[in-house]
Amino acid sequence: NQASVVANQLIPINTALTLVMMRSEVVTPVGIPADDIPRLVSMQVNRAVPLGTTLMPDMVKGYP
């Protein structure tokens, strides 16, 4: 099973992602692959992302 990117904390709308905000976890449904975490750094979320939420491609501005 492939690990996905999961919010490690509440991420407010328009926040630029940092490594501490994300963790990898095997979840269903599958979200953004954990391998993409380095690419996500400094990209902004377009909505508030609660703790434990799987990051989906449509939540991150400019992804992929």
Rank of each mutant, 00 (worst) to 15 (best):
Q2W: 14
A3Q: 10
P29M: 04
E25T: 09
A48P: 08
R23H: 06
P50H: 14
E25H: 11
L10G: 10
V26Q: 13
S4A: 03
V5G: 01
V45Y: 00
P64N: 11
S24R: 15
D35G: 15
L55N: 01
V45Q: 00
S4I: 01
N1C: 04
M21D: 05
P33D: 11
V26I: 12
I13D: 14
V45N: 01
T28P: 00
N1Y: 12
P64V: 12
G52E: 04
M22N: 02
L40T: 01
T18R: 10
L19Y: 09
M43H: 09
D35N: 14
V30R: 15
N14T: 04
V30F: 07
L51H: 10
V20G: 14
P12F: 06
V6G: 01
D35H: 15
P12K: 08
V45H: 01
V26T: 13
D35T: 14
V41P: 02
S4D: 00
S4M: 02
M56G: 09
T28F: 14
V49Q: 02
A16C: 05
G62V: 05
Y63W: 14
M59T: 05
M43R: 09
Q9C: 04
A7D: 02
M22C: 03
L10C: 05
A16K: 14
N8Y: 03
N14W: 14
T15L: 04
Q2A: 11
V49M: 06
L55S: 00
P57K: 05
P33T: 10
V20L: 09
T54L: 04
V41T: 06
V41Y: 05
T53A: 13
P64R: 03
N1Q: 14
V27K: 07
Y63H: 05
Q2T: 13
Q44I: 12
T28W: 15
L40I: 13
M22T: 02
L19V: 09
I32N: 01
Q44Y: 15
L17K: 00
S24P: 10
P57Y: 12
T53L: 08
I13A: 15
K61Q: 14
R39V: 11
L40P: 00
A34I: 07
A34T: 10
L19T: 11
V45L: 11
N46T: 15
P57V: 08
L40N: 00
M56T: 12
R47K: 13
D36M: 13
S42R: 07
L55W: 02
R39P: 03
T15C: 05
A48T: 07
R23E: 04
V41D: 03
A7G: 03
G52A: 06
S4P: 00
T54S: 04
S24H: 09
M21E: 02
R47G: 05
